[in-house]
Simulated scan of single mutants.
Amino acid sequence: MTETSTIQTSTRLTLSHNMQARSDLPQISHLEKHGYLFGKKLTASLSPFLHGVVYDKLAMNWGQVRYDSADIQEFLHLVQDPSFYGASVTMPNKVAIIPYLDQLTPEATAIGACNTIYLKTDESGRRLLCGANTDTIGVRDSFTQNLTEAQLQSTIYGRPGLIIGGGGAARSAIYALRTWLGTTDIYLVNRDAREVQAVIDDLRLSGFGTEGIMHVSSVEQAESLAEPGAAVGCVPDFPPKTEEEHVARQITEVFLAKTDKGTILEMCYNPSPYTELGALAERAGWKVILGTEALIYQGLEQDRYWTGYQLEQLPVQDVKKAIAAHLMSLSKI
Score class of each variant (00 low, 15 high):
175 Y>A: 08
252 T>H: 02
83 S>G: 09
246 H>P: 00
22 R>Y: 01
34 H>Y: 14
96 A>I: 02
241 K>C: 01
65 V>H: 12
137 I>S: 11
169 A>S: 13
313 Q>R: 04
281 A>S: 02
37 L>M: 03
87 A>D: 08
232 V>M: 06
246 H>L: 14
136 T>F: 01
101 L>K: 04
116 T>Q: 06
41 K>D: 15
267 M>H: 00
85 Y>K: 07
191 R>H: 07
296 I>P: 06
31 L>D: 12
222 A>D: 02
308 G>K: 09
106 P>N: 08
318 D>I: 00
194 R>L: 06
3 E>H: 13
7 I>C: 02
106 P>L: 03
162 L>V: 01
219 V>Q: 11
149 E>P: 03
248 A>G: 06
2 T>F: 06
154 S>L: 11
128 L>V: 07
322 A>K: 08
26 P>K: 09
237 D>A: 10
160 P>C: 07
321 K>W: 01
301 E>D: 09
231 A>T: 09
9 T>Y: 13
224 S>C: 06
71 D>R: 02
252 T>D: 03
97 I>L: 12
162 L>W: 06
181 L>Q: 07
84 F>S: 11
139 V>E: 03
245 E>H: 05
24 D>Y: 12
193 A>S: 14
186 I>G: 11
51 H>Q: 14
132 A>P: 02
109 T>R: 14
141 D>G: 00
108 A>G: 11
130 C>T: 03
176 A>D: 07
214 M>Q: 15
114 C>S: 13
214 M>H: 12
16 S>T: 13
241 K>N: 03
16 S>W: 11
330 L>A: 12
316 V>Q: 10
288 V>A: 10
207 G>H: 09
207 G>N: 10
327 L>Q: 15
115 N>S: 08
73 Q>E: 15
30 H>I: 09
70 A>K: 10
79 V>M: 08
83 S>L: 11
286 W>Y: 01
34 H>R: 07
55 Y>F: 15
89 V>M: 04
174 I>W: 07
144 T>L: 07
176 A>I: 01
216 V>M: 04
203 L>P: 05
48 P>V: 11
10 S>D: 13
193 A>I: 03
6 T>S: 15
31 L>I: 07
39 G>C: 09
250 Q>H: 10
114 C>M: 02
171 R>T: 04
103 Q>I: 04
266 E>A: 07
27 Q>A: 13
131 G>E: 05
275 T>V: 05
322 A>I: 08
297 Y>W: 11
99 P>S: 11
260 D>G: 00
24 D>K: 09
268 C>H: 00
190 N>R: 02
311 L>V: 02
